[in-house]
Structures are given as structure tokens and as C-alpha cells.
């Protein structure tokens, strides 16, 4: 990275460290921090969308839809979430391949499960066996995102469902009194009003989502935990220019600090948003602000 890094064996102290921390291998650790941010940026809106669908269907007047919505919310409750992560990532992959298999290879006569193997025809493979490496990586990452979105969607659905019920009934009745239809009242009154009730739950969820990102490691993505373990393990001079003893403790301390900073920053930002949203609302916080202004 730096010009003086050409012969690491002559370096000492800080200059050694600066070279060590900027090897291409370390860059992969830093990229994976970016992966975490990318995962959050994609998962949060997706999970919110899933959650909105779940909450809306749980409120639906059409019974089967309501049951689906309620089951979706309830099922994640009693079971450890990481079991869901481990489950979905295999199950989704097999589901997609099975669906493609049914469509693309209708005249396949062998069973899909042969002993301990899961066999689909070559055309149904996801990604296709001859696809380039980046497709495989993108596919793996998308599976992870989808898994996160499903699990966190259920949590978000729970929060939004509660928030929809917390919107004062009088507001809805007023809407009807003005002649709005159910649909209009839903979109124009309930949805805009529910956010302030949902925000404490959603910000809690955001913090939980941040803290769930290291679980990417369990989904087979080469993430920060993978690189921290790989880089921290003791290295001998034969295979690297930067030999060192077992430093895994320090790498994980680094990750710990990274997450502490990240959650603290989020807390501050979310507090700001909450203040803004509470303004003029018929809630305790809104009332307090009104009094403070008056």
C-alpha cells in the first residue's frame, strides 16, 4: 500500500503495523465491513416491505389471508432465530431448485431425494453449473438477504401490526365520517399515522438487525467473522511477509468496537427521528413537546 512497504522484514513498530493492516488480504476484511453495510441497506427496506405485507394481511378481513399473516408473525416467536437462519438458507435454495426442476424438466423420473442427496436436473441448478463465479457469490448473498428479510419481516410485521392497532380509533372514525372509503382511510390516515407508534419498535428492530449481521458467517458468506478468524490466526514466516502469533482476540475486540460505535451512532440518529415524528402527535411525547414549546 505505502511505498515503504516493499520489504516488510525491515520494518518495525507503527510503520510495520501500517503496512500489515493495508495488505490486500486486510482489504478483504474492510470490504466485508462494507458487505455488512450493504446487507443492512438492502435488508432493512425489504424486511419492512415483508413486514408491511404481513401486518396488512394479519389485519385483513379475508380469513385465510389473516391466518397466513398471523402464522407468519407467530411462527418466529417460539423458536431461536439462528435456527431459522440455518434452516432457510438451505430450504430456500432447495425450494427454488425444486420449482425450476418441476418447470424445466417435466420428464425427469428419478426421485429428488436420493438417500442423502438432493438431486435436480442440471438445467434447474441455481445458479447454473457453468455460471461465472460472481453469479455464485451474488446468488449466495441474495439467499442470505432473503433469509434475513423473511425473519426480520416477521418481527417488523409484529411491530407494524401493533402500531396499526395503536392509532386512535377516533382518527379512523373521523376519516369515515368525512366519507372516505375503507381503502382511502387505510392509506391516507392509518398508514401515515402508524409510524410514530411503530418507530420505537422499529428502532429496536434496527439495532437487533445490526447485531444480527455477524450471523452472515453461519450462512456461508465470507464475512467479517471469517476474515477476523483467518487474519488473526498465527502465521509463520514461510507463507506470509507479516508473521505474527495468535491475534484473534484483538481482531474480535476490533469487531466489538466497530459494532459499539455503529449501534451508538444509530441510537443518536433514531432519537433525532423520533423527536421529529413525535411533533404534533397525540402521544405522551408529542404532548410533552407541545407543552415545552408553549
Amino acid at each position: 500500500m505505502f511505498p515503504y512497504c516493499t520489504d516488510p522484514s525491515t520494518l518495525e513498530g507503527l510503520s510495520w503495523l501500517s503496512c500489515y493492516l493495508t495488505t490486500s488480504k486486510h482489504m478483504m476484511l474492510f470490504y466485508s465491513l462494507g458487505t455488512v453495510l450493504l446487507l443492512l441497506a438492502i435488508t432493512a427496506p425489504t424486511a419492512l416491505a415483508f413486514g408491511f405485507l404481513g401486518a396488512t394481511s394479519a389485519k385483513s378481513h379475508f380469513a385465510p389471508l389473516r391466518w397466513i399473516g398471523k402464522t407468519y408473525i407467530a411462527i418466529v416467536r417460539g423458536v431461536p432465530d439462528i435456527a431459522f437462519f440455518l434452516f432457510f438458507v438451505i430450504a430456500l435454495d432447495q425450494l427454488f431448485e425444486w420449482v425450476r426442476h418441476e418447470i424445466k424438466c417435466p420428464d425427469w423420473d428419478q426421485p429428488i431425494r436420493q438417500g442423502n442427496d438432493f438431486v435436480v436436473c442440471a438445467a434447474a441448478k441455481l445458479p447454473l453449473g457453468d455460471a461465472p463465479q460472481w453469479v455464485h457469490e451474488v446468488y449466495g448473498f441474495s439467499l442470505a438477504v432473503l433469509t434475513f428479510a423473511i425473519v426480520f419481516g416477521a418481527f417488523a410485521a409484529n411491530v407494524l401490526f401493533g402500531a396499526m392497532r395503536a392509532v386512535p380509533h377516533a382518527q379512523m372514525e373521523t376519516a369515515y365520517a368525512y366519507g372516505m372509503s375503507k381503502r382511502q382511510a387505510f392509506w391516507r390516515v392509518l398508514v401515515p399515522q402508524m409510524w410514530v407508534y411503530a418507530l420505537p419498535g422499529l428502532s429496536n428492530l434496527w439495532m437487533v438487525l445490526i447485531k444480527a449481521t455477524p450471523l452472515l458467517f453461519l450462512l456461508g458468506v465470507e464475512d467479517i467473522v471469517y476474515w477476523a478468524r483467518e487474519l488473526g490466526a498465527s502465521k509463520t514466516p514461510r507463507f506470509t511477509d507479516y508473521p505474527h502469533p495468535d491475534w484473534r482476540m484483538w481482531y474480535f475486540l476490533g469487531l466489538l468496537v466497530f459494532y459499539l460505535l455503529f449501534t451508538r451512532l444509530s441510537e443518536i440518529v433514531l432519537e433525532k427521528i423520533m423527536r421529529r415524528l413525535s411533533h404534533g402527535q397525540a402521544t405522551a411525547a408529542g404532548e410533552a413537546m407541545r407543552r415545552a414549546d408553549a
Binding site: K211, L215, V225, L260, T263
Partner: peptide
């Protein structure tokens, strides 16, 4: 703050190596 602000998963790893 430290125990609520960081992932338990990382705490386990760090704890083990510590």
C-alpha cells in the same frame, strides 16, 4: 452499554479468545 450494544455472537468469540 458494552453488552447491549454489541452482538452476542462477537462477544462469544471475543470471550473465548480472551
Amino acid at each position: 452499554f458494552v453488552f447491549r450494544g454489541s452482538p452476542l455472537f462477537i462477544q462469544f468469540f471475543f470471550g473465548y479468545f480472551l
